[in-house]
């Protein structure tokens, strides 16, 4: 089972290698307004921190629930 876990982690790590391609582009020569300014000011990172905090909070909640149910299962057995 642990071997399987490492295998999947490896698969996922290889996915991470792929996101290097980053290029600017525009549709038909006309520059399209994007949130580049916001990103230049560093403010997009605030959004990421907020979203990731919510995500981590949700994960903590689900993991606790998971453990609680596991404990109940042990008690019933």
């Amino acid at each position: 089972m642990h071997k399987k876990a490492y295998f999947w982690l490896l698969v996922f790590a290889s996915w991470f290698m792929g996101f290097s391609a980053r290029a600017q582009d525009s549709a038909g020569g006309k520059p399209v307004e994007m949130a580049d300014g916001l990103r230049a000011n560093g403010k997009i990172y605030v959004v990421i921190i907020v979203v990731v905090t919510i995500l981590l909070g949700l994960f903590a909640y689900v993991i606790r629930l998971d453990r609680k149910i596991s404990r109940l299962e042990k008690n019933v057995k």
Binding site: F19, R22, A23, Q24, D25, S26, A27, K30, P31, V32, M34, R39, I44, V47, I48, V51
Partner: peptide
């Protein structure tokens, strides 16, 4: 959020 995306109208 960080990755670049195609700029479309």
């Amino acid at each position: 959020f960080l990755g670049s995306v195609p700029a479309l109208p």
